[in-house]
């Protein structure tokens, strides 16, 4: 089967086999024998403490880092057999930040999401402009269209990057902490948008999150990482348990259920204040 046919056959899974990455030989590996298989149709949350390997895993899944030991496969085919443009039509990526040293406007930046779909010389057509405008409306950044990226707040920048990713119109969306700089309203707005994309358009969402409650509210599957390995991988309700969180984060957790809401929230419990008299 040619690469093209394989590609048109929209992928059911993106997996890693014994993925190992140790960029600095004097430090422990960033990824240590990671086996994970992401299946299409889900809303994945990737959680874990700082430095647990979440971003490195995502960057391998997009071939932003080439696997040196172990491998990454899309539908069973090694990711190195795909052209970059093919991957870009399959998976869009919201990085934690982009460079803004050379000033582009918000509209120009969101249009970049259309790159893998553009034809000769990259001139946008009507469908490209339509996709850009609807993505900007969906993320609430349409009023910023002519603003320079370099003057945006952290939260606005994140929403523009989500808009760019939505405009890319891929069956899979990878997002690296897309809501870390957002206020509570916009956190829900972005997560609601992702849930809509997942439920209504059947897109697969893979989202690195620090907020365990957001993960519990929106994700149906959770991949929990620690020290470069997978600690737990399964249904959100199975993985998100106080004892497991406590072990991974080294912080005590309790469940609380706000009266009148069908919600169960995790509350981290601080260690007792030893300096108190």
């Amino acid at each position: 089967m040619s690469t093209r046919e394989r590609f048109l056959d929209s992928p059911g899974s993106i997996s890693t086999e014994k993925l190992f990455w140790q960029p600095d030989p004097n430090r422990p590996p960033v990824l240590d024998s990671v086996d994970v298989s992401l299946k299409s149709g889900h809303f994945y949350g990737i959680i874990g403490p700082n430095g647990s390997g979440k971003t490195s895993l995502i960057r391998h899944l997009l071939r932003l880092i080439r696997a040196e030991k172990g491998r990454v496969t899309i539908n069973g085919t090694d990711i190195s057999e795909f052209r970059r443009r093919e991957i870009a039509r399959l998976i869009s990526y919201v990085p934690q930040k982009v460079e803004t040293g050379i000033a582009f406007s918000v509209g120009e930046n969101v249009m970049m999401g259309r790159n893998p779909h553009l034809k000769w010389f990259g001139f946008p057509e009507k469908e490209d402009r339509d996709a850009v405008f609807s993505a900007m409306r969906a993320t609430g950044v349409e009023d910023l269209i002519d603003s320079q990226m370099s003057i945006l707040s952290g939260g606005e920048t994140q929403r523009v990057l989500v808009a760019r990713s939505v405009a890319q119109e891929c069956p899979w969306l990878f997002l690296d902490e897309p809501v870390s700089n957002l206020d509570i309203y916009h956190q829900f707005a972005v997560m609601d948008l992702l849930r809509d994309l997942n439920r209504k358009e059947g897109k697969t969402i893979v989202c690195v999150l620090h907020d365990i409650n957001l993960a519990a509210m929106y994700c149906d599957r959770i991949v929990m990482m620690n020290n470069g390995g997978i600690v737990a991988d399964g249904a959100a309700s199975d993985v998100l348990r106080p004892e497991l969180l406590e072990r991974v984060y080294n912080v005590a957790f309790r469940w609380v259920e706000p009266p009148g809401e069908s919600l169960r929230l995790f509350v981290p419990i601080p260690k007792p204040d030893r300096s108190a008299p």
Partner: peptide, 18 residues
């Protein structure tokens, strides 16, 4: 030209855009 615009947003960003 357009690829150069995208390259200015960073290598990871550009590579993820193909």
């Amino acid at each position: 030209s357009f690829s150069l615009d995208i390259l200015a947003t960073g290598d990871d960003s550009a590579e993820s855009l193909g």
